[in-house]
Amino acid sequence: MIPKINGLGRSFAGVAAYCLHDAPEPDDRRPETSERVGWTDTRNLATVRPERAARLMAATAKAAPDLKRLAGGAQGGRKLAKPVLHYSLSWARDETPDRREMSRAVDGSLEALGLEHHEALIVAHEDTRHPHVHVIANRVDPATGKAAKLGNSKLRLSRWAEGFEREQGRIRCEERVKNNARRRAGQEVVRNPWERPLHWARYRREGMLPRRARRARGPVDEKRVDMEAWRRAEAQAWEKVEDGRWLGFWRLETQARKEWAELHKRQEDTRQRLDRESRTVRGRLRIWGVERSLRELVGAIRGRGDLVEGWREELDRYHKHERAALGKAHGESAREIERKVRENYGRGLRDAERWAREMRDREGTRARGPSITRIVPQQPRPRGPDRGGERFER
Rank of each mutant, 00 (worst) to 15 (best):
M1G: 07
S11C: 04
V15R: 05
V15A: 09
Y18F: 08
L20G: 01
H21S: 07
E35W: 14
R36W: 02
L45D: 01
R49F: 11
R49V: 08
E51P: 01
A54S: 09
A54E: 00
M57R: 11
A59T: 07
P65M: 08
L70A: 14
G72W: 07
L80K: 07
A81G: 04
P83W: 06
S88D: 03
A92F: 11
R93A: 10
P97D: 02
R104P: 01
A105H: 09
D107G: 11
G108S: 13
S109F: 07
S109H: 15
S109A: 13
L110Q: 11
L110C: 06
A112T: 14
L121S: 09
V123D: 03
P131S: 06
H132E: 04
V133P: 01
V133K: 07
V135H: 04
V135T: 00
N138V: 10
V140F: 00
T144M: 10
L150Y: 02
G151P: 00
S153L: 05
L157H: 06
E167T: 07
Q168C: 07
R172C: 05
E175P: 01
N179S: 07
R182T: 08
R183Y: 07
Q187F: 03
V189R: 03
V189Y: 03
V190G: 01
P193G: 03
P193S: 08
W194N: 14
W200D: 15
G207P: 04
G207F: 02
R212H: 07
D221P: 01
W230I: 02
Q236N: 13
A237W: 00
E239G: 11
E239Y: 03
K240S: 13
E242V: 03
E242P: 02
G248Q: 05
F249C: 03
Q255M: 11
E259Y: 02
H264A: 12
R266S: 14
R266F: 09
R271V: 10
Q272N: 04
S278M: 10
L285K: 15
I287A: 05
G289R: 10
V290E: 15
L294Q: 12
L294F: 13
R295A: 15
V298T: 13
V308Y: 05
V308L: 12
R317N: 12
H319E: 05
A324H: 12
S333T: 07
A334L: 04
E336Y: 13
V341C: 09
G346I: 10
L349N: 03
D351K: 15
D361R: 15
E363G: 03
P380T: 11
R381E: 14
R381D: 13
G384T: 15
